[in-house]
Design a protein around this nucleic acid. Structure first.
Length: 595
RNA sequence: UGGGAGAUCGUCUAACGGUAGGACAACGGACUCUGACUCCGUUUAUCUAGGUUCGAAUCCUAGUCUCCCAGCCA
């Protein structure tokens, strides 16, 4: 982009790339995008570079989706790029399994990275930069133990005290740090610390640790390093090395920003190519710049937890069936549950970006998914709680094939054949011997439309010894069949069905919210989050599917008419033994009205 | 007198000294061979108190409330 076009605030190349330009969707106007537009307009930046930097110590969850959509989304809108960077500075907690999972999840959400990087790619740079810090008198090797460091740090309201090792000579520090790197000292016996201000009101500035000794194999660098850099040091330098212009992170890093800037400025990578030249020679695209950290509020969802520790606990204590359990709000769990990338992106788009702490109602998320699925999911018929309905005015061996549109509003979905016969399964809930007020479904002597068939009248009930209705005997109004003059006749209700003889039995897993209170993390009532787990979050039933539903490929999503959106389980489903997961029910104003 | 941040409909979010707008939710209606979808309509908000100004969500002053920070985690 030329400086001239960058100086024009609105119809620059940047905003032309965004959806608002052709008047389709309003352009996102959050404060971060405003900053970016200003930076482009003022010529401060000519291209936008972002990064998504997860630590590979667990699977991604819905909260990460916000950061992913923001970082990759902005890169896309402003014709920039976004790196995927694994923040792997703490070996022992991190695992290559999670790296693969993260890559998978990001792609599934619909994004692609410019470069895949690891913080560990830069360990050599970090080490050399730390030596520069020492030489410049900005860092020292400390012999204090972890407990002592804590004691010296002071409290939120009292200043800390200088470590007795704070004034070691540059030569001594350099030598000690070299020996740390050589592995001469035991874990925890020494650290490298930044020399800043032990009296700072910002705890992060009280001589923060830069390196700690940890003799553990690293998932990427193996045994090469006995010392590992801390987040505050590694993260900002990684950003600088990658030429990240806007380093977007969540609110809790707000008071790390002075430290972020301190390291970036003290080390000044752009002015010291000797520190990173070898990266280029090693094949890494490297163009260091001064990054700017901007914080936004994280996504909180009601009826959910988004703590990695707790998610891991659910898995480890077998409270769920794994990281991809459909009850989990991990991206893998949501995927298996049948949530769509489009639905997730829609949610993030609707939330907007700000610095206010907020909690999004889970219902909003469900509605985003419904909205996406309504347009994209073919329709099928299925009965989950069967009640037999016999059409007495059809011959015993009556059998025909009906043609159904796969989507009510989109002919491009085509048609399918649905077998119809004398005996059907209907939903038990669609019949009431004593109907409540406003009931539009089947009742004794009442009429209802069988979806795609015609109008049926309930003539008789069959009950078992306990008085339970086991069978409905109905007559079909032949004149109301498709193509007949009475086909347009109106009745209040339409219900779904499957042919008993042709239906395929399926395992159907009915999922609901994992927690039964809006804020499971809130322990002010004296209850732990574990006590709020909803035991009804997973119910398994046997249902009956029309044959065309059973034949689905794994991960095929359908709307089972009048029931909800379902997905063929990507792990367990087979055409001969179908397994479907309920993603979300349809909106049900009748259930709401009926209580 | 520790530091940092934030308070706008029920929920998110916009406004950049000039009509408090949008989305979602809720409610009402229309439509309907899915009580879905869609369409139309309605209700509801500037944390408090002062001040500056012709005019304040926005600027100033003083409060109130909420969140984050004392890892050799990220």
């Amino acid at each position: 982009m030329s400086t001239d076009s960058a100086a024009v605030p609105t119809p620059s190349a940047a905003s032309a790339a965004s959806p608002g330009a052709d008047g389709q969707k309003p352009e996102p106007r959050d404060f971060i995008r405003q900053i970016i537009r200003d930076d482009l307009a003022s010529g401060r930046h000519h291209a936008i570079r972002t990064r998504f930097p997860p630590e590979p110590n667990g699977y991604l969850h819905i909260g990460h989706a916000k950061a992913i959509c923001l970082n990759f989304g902005i890169a896309g809108e402003f014709a920039g790029w976004c790196n995927l960077r694994l923040d792997d500075t703490n070996p022992g907690k991190e695992d290559p399994e999670f790296v693969e999972g993260i890559k998978d999840d990001v792609r599934w959400l619909g994004y692609d990275w410019h470069d895949l990087r690891h913080a560990s790619d830069y360990f050599e740079v970090f080490y050399d930069a730390a030596r520069k810090l020492i030489r410049d008198g900005h860092a020292y090797v400390d012999d204090l133990s972890a407990d002592e460091v804590r004691a010296y740090r002071g409290t939120l309201t009292e200043p800390g005290r200088n470590s007795p090792f704070r004034d070691r000579s540059v030569e001594e520090n350099l030598e000690l740090f070299r020996r740390m790197r050589e592995g001469e000292f035991a874990d925890g016996s020494k650290t490298l610390r930044a020399k800043i201000d032990m009296a700072s009101g910002n705890m992060n500035m009280r001589d923060p640790t830069i390196y700690r000794i940890r003799k553990i194999a690293h998932q990427n660098t193996g045994e090469a390093w006995p010392i590992y850099p801390m987040y505050d040091y590694a993260h900002c330098l990684s950003d600088a090395l990658e030429g990240i212009t806007h380093s977007l992170c969540t609110l809790e890093f707000e008071d790390h920003r002075p430290l972020y800037d301190w390291f970036v400025d003290k080390i000044d990578l752009p002015a010291h190519p000797e520190l990173w030249q070898h990266l280029r020679e090693g094949g890494f695209r490297t163009e260091p710049a001064k990054p700017r950290q901007i914080e936004f509020s994280r996504l909180n969802l009601s009826y959910s937890i988004t703590s990695k520790r707790k998610l891991a606990q659910l898995v480890n204590e077998r409270l769920v069936d794994g990281w991809d359990d459909p009850r989990m709000n991990t991206l893998r769990g949501l995927r298996r549950r049948g949530f769509t990338p489009g639905g997730i992106r829609l949610l993030i788009e609707r939330l907007g970006i700000s610095k206010q702490n907020s909690v999004i109602d889970y219902a909003i998320f469900e509605n985003c998914v419904r909205e996406d699925l309504d347009g994209s999911a073919p329709r099928r018929l299925a009965v989950l709680d069967p009640l037999k309905l016999v059409i007495t005015n059809l011959a015993d061996d009556h059998q025909e094939t009906l043609s159904f549109p796969n989507h009510p509003k989109d002919e491009s979905f085509g048609q399918r054949e649905v077998p119809f016969a004398r005996e059907l399964w209907i939903e038990r809930e669609d019949f009431a011997e004593v109907p409540p007020k406003g009931f539009h479904r089947l009742k004794p002597d009442g009429e209802v439309r069988l979806r795609g068939v015609g109008i049926v009248k309930c003539e008789a009930l069959v009950k078992d010894a306990a008085g339970q209705v086991t069978e409905l005997h109905c007559t079909l109004d032949l004149d109301s069949r498709a193509g007949m003059p009475g086909a347009e006749r109106k009745v209040k209700g339409t219900i779904h069905w499957v042919s008993a003889r042709h239906a395929v039995a399926a395992e159907v897993r009915l999922y609901d919210r994992l927690f039964n209170v809006p804020a499971p993390d809130d322990d002010s009532d004296g209850k732990s989050w574990l006590e709020h787990i909803n035991p009804e979050a997973k119910r398994v039933v046997r249902g009956w599917l029309e044959p065309a539903a059973a034949a689905a490929a794994p991960e095929q999503r359908y709307q089972f008419e009048r029931l909800g959106y379902f997905v063929a389980d990507r792990v367990d489903h087979r055409a001969e033994a179908p397994v479907f997961n309920r993603t979300v029910t349809l909106r049900d104003t009748w259930a709401k009205q009926a209580g």
